[in-house]
Design a protein around this nucleic acid. Structure first.
Lengths: 238, 238
DNA sequence: GAAACGTTATATGTCATACATTTAACGTAT
DNA sequence: ATACGTTAAATGTATGACATATAACGTTTC
């Protein structure tokens, strides 16, 4: 007699949300497509406008659609990017769920792998971009431009690793360290003098997987050690 | 004369959303706390109930609060977990932004590192849990219980690595492979016979970092090779 | 003809009100 | 003390009205 399952009183707005979400996931609506207008959804789901609107709002908050007003407006399926992962990582850090140290350690483990993969997949085009970025590092600008220039190489390598998941989390980590550095604003030339990336780039362009890994690890140890203690200072000053 | 900035017509509901979000991030409301009721928020923000509700709905969709109905109901600040990253990874996969192969490759690179760290930080308590989980693997149940049992060890190791970021992404990957396997439902005893984890566990408990890395890498190569081709079949059958 | 301007149509955004539903807590009768 | 009904406080849904944003179309004006 105890086999009865609880009757889950699912909220109408959640049900609409789920159905729309599934429709998107199934490919019935793909990036750029417009979902039916509120009026149409009201008819098809036979619910009130309140319900439809809350469902669409949820889709928007989840990053699945963007809502545009006006005559040609509506809810358009968003091109899903990996930015969400980055923004979530930001949230987690600022909610104190990750320490700066953990982020640095994670970079220390992941980025050498990425550098190795980048060496494996290096093309002449990427080699050119790497050399360009390296040349630009000597410029010293204001925050946050400096941070951007100095981390450009890291972003490039992330793009080169040929694995979108690794690209995404690596970029998240780089961006997070960068944004913290921007707030803290240490003397960039001290903690990250230009030219630190030479050996990495050489190995990557040469296609030397192990060498790239090694060089990246050494670089991060240099760099991150210098940043040690930055978190406490940051958490104090904010 | 061209210095005028565009006047961004921010939507009221977004504004409320942002203020509540900031309040949570700043710690004014922490996990478990109840946000003011709709009635109170209406007064404080001087907006309609529609606006307040849509803002709260967005918070819920973003995973920042859970909404409970009833007399003692309301919007309660959620303990921010790393589940968000997992759910994002799910979205990305199902939207075709990541291939199964990429996920497997990422696991192949990350999990050995995690195993190594687990070996470094292994405690007697964790050792006990590992042995228990290992003993339970021989049971064969239905999907998705079997998958849960067979991946238990992996989850444990993820918890042991002492780096919440790595824990999170590792679990995301494990969970993703698991959920895909659950849909595809191959013969578990074939692709993942019990006992595959012995050498890993031995190395971890012995505190042998390099050995654990090595063993995990070998295990994943065995396991993931067997899963090769699963994605195409999956993408066909659904 | 084309640029400027007003009009219109079609979306979404907001407000207000009423009622439904869920849920805990309290009181009361058995 | 248990069972039951009542009440109160919250969220959930429905509906109608109006506000606003935006593109497209027409119309005037030069």
């Amino acid at each position: 007699m105890n086999n009865f399952k609880p009757i889950k009183q699912i909220k109408a707005s959640d049900e609409v949300f789920n159905q729309l979400r599934e429709a998107i996931f199934s490919g019935r609506f793909s990036a750029g497509d417009k979902l039916p207008s509120e009026r149409e959804l009201i008819e098809k789901f036979a619910v009130s406008r309140t319900v439809v609107r809350e469902a669409i709002k949820s889709l928007e908050a989840r990053g699945l659609v963007v809502i545009k007003q006006g005559a040609t407006g509506g809810a358009f399926v968003k091109e899903m990017t990996f930015d969400r992962l980055s923004s979530d990582c930001n949230d987690l850090f600022f909610l104190g769920k990750m320490s700066f140290n953990e982020i640095c350690q994670a970079r220390l483990h992941i980025e050498p792998i990425v550098a190795g993969l980048a060496a494996k997949h290096c093309t002449p085009e990427y080699a050119k971009l790497l050399l360009e970025a390296n040349a630009n590092e000597s410029l010293t600008l204001e925050y946050p431009e400096t941070v951007m220039l100095r981390s450009k190489i890291h972003y490039l390598l992330a793009d080169m690793c040929n694995n979108r998941f690794l690209t995404a989390i690596d970029k998240s980590l780089i961006q997070l360290v960068g944004s913290i550095a921007s707030k803290f604003q240490p003397d960039t030339d001290k903690i990250h003098p230009p030219g630190m990336h030479h050996s990495i780039i050489d190995a990557v362009i040469a296609g030397d997987e192990a060498g790239a890994e090694q060089a990246m690890r050494a670089h991060l140890l240099d760099f991150l050690v210098l940043l040690d203690g930055i978190e406490e200072e940051y958490r104090h000053t904010q």
